[in-house]
Design a binder for these strands. Structure first.
Lengths: 239, 239
DNA sequence: AAGTGGTCTAGACCACGTC
DNA sequence: ACGTGGTCTAGACCACTTC
């Protein structure tokens, strides 16, 4: 099971304190935190210890630091969230920005597979968002997005979803998506793919199965994307 | 173009010095470096500055640190290199360890596409390694690997390649692979795929196009892998 | 006990952005 | 000129490993 630490460095405690403040919305996205010095004074530790924590949170992309200005809550703006987790591009080329087109939202009981994937109770409900996205005016990608209804209450009442849901999760629900696990495989286009993506039945389709995790390791979203594979690739750099 | 720094922190210089020593083989993989204190003394900087650099190199997976013992050159052992860059797994499941089967090595002139991809001269030669790998005894994956001949001289004379080439690059040629850029797309199985992977022509195939970069950003290897897509996925966690 | 990396401190100075 | 983050130092103590 979990390790008994028996020893807990000071910076770990400071880390937990600051993460809690961020999660509980002590500062809004884009807002600046107090300076290192004032945080150090308030928490009764040295500036170096505060710095270590702020650097770690910056590496996790929860904060942004700007020399000469201050430390800010990172904003999952449309642009940034898109390029962070949207991995579709032209072969060898620059990132693409998809446009949204048709979209449908409904709330319903979670299916068994969804309960298993998202660690939900037997009677849990989910919000399902399905949408098609265009690249250069052509339908290129179809997404089925499932989120537990209780963590995004009222989301179905919105007129339209933003292009990147993750900025909505952050600003309206205080949920920071910090990691995603993705599994990619190939399939043949079905009749539905033909209808939605305008590809021939039997042509190759890239399927991306993504689980999105919040700062507290909570499973927030299950997303399955079907992408036409002519002239598009899933691009990632591993270090 | 490149930025004129105009200002170069001390730790950057220390970083360059230590990277050069590692690259030039001052210590063998698995060997320990001098302690922080002695490095600091030798280089005429404080221990804190040396520590900052050693931590950075550890994050780049070039070094490993063990409390109470020392700092070591990271070994690209078979196991570790495999799990670091081999991203094929069962859906939702644990990593798989592929076995190698048939293999062919030849040296030949670089093709135009290869010269472009690897930044090679017009008359450059390359080593091409093609091999098929098994998972659970079944052919699952076929790789075509192209490396500039001048950076791995004599590699074609080896009796057999190791399961992970990256450990060979490190131990025999002093090349540390620190990053890969991969592009994944879907295709339909060709007649060659049918022969090599025992899949029906027209079934879905996952194609992975990988460029491997060394510590000095040198393009070391271009690898194209064709993977049967039944019961296998390309799995990656983004943070 | 000795040596290593890991944490923490206090203070100095530098580079950057704003006023 | 001032406040911010970024770098650098010197020294102390802690935790882990080995002898």
């Amino acid at each position: 099971m979990t390790e008994t630490p028996g020893y807990r460095p000071l910076y770990r405690q400071v880390y937990d304190i600051l993460v809690n403040r961020v999660v509980q919305g002590a500062w809004r996205p884009g807002e600046s935190l107090p300076s290192e010095q004032s945080l150090a004074k308030e928490l009764g530790v040295s500036q170096g210890t505060v710095r270590k924590v702020l650097d770690a949170l910056t590496a996790e992309k929860l904060l942004e630091r700007r020399q000469g200005k201050g430390t800010y809550i990172a904003e999952h703006t449309q642009e940034r969230a898109l390029f962070r987790f949207f991995k579709i591009s032209r072969p060898g080329g620059a990132r693409l920005k998809p446009e949204r087109t048709s979209e449908a939202v409904k709330v319903r009981a979670a299916r068994a597979a969804e309960r298993a994937k998202l660690d939900l109770d037997r009677d849990a409900r989910v919000v399902e968002i399905t949408r098609t996205r265009l690249i250069d005016g052509q339908p290129a990608l179809h997404e089925s997005i499932v989120v537990p209804a209780h963590i995004v209450p009222g989301i179905e009442k919105r007129a339209a979803m933003p292009n990147t849901l993750y900025s909505l999760y952050q600003t309206d629900y205080g949920i920071n998506i910090v990691a995603t696990h993705e599994e990619v495989h190939a399939e043949l286009a079905s009749a539905a793919d033909q209808r939605i993506l305008s590809v021939a039945v039997g042509s190759p389709i890239l399927v991306i199965d993504r689980l999105a995790l919040s700062l507290q390791e909570r499973k927030v979203e299950w997303r399955v994307s079907r992408v036409r594979s002519d002239g598009l690739v899933y691009a990632v750099t591993l270090t």
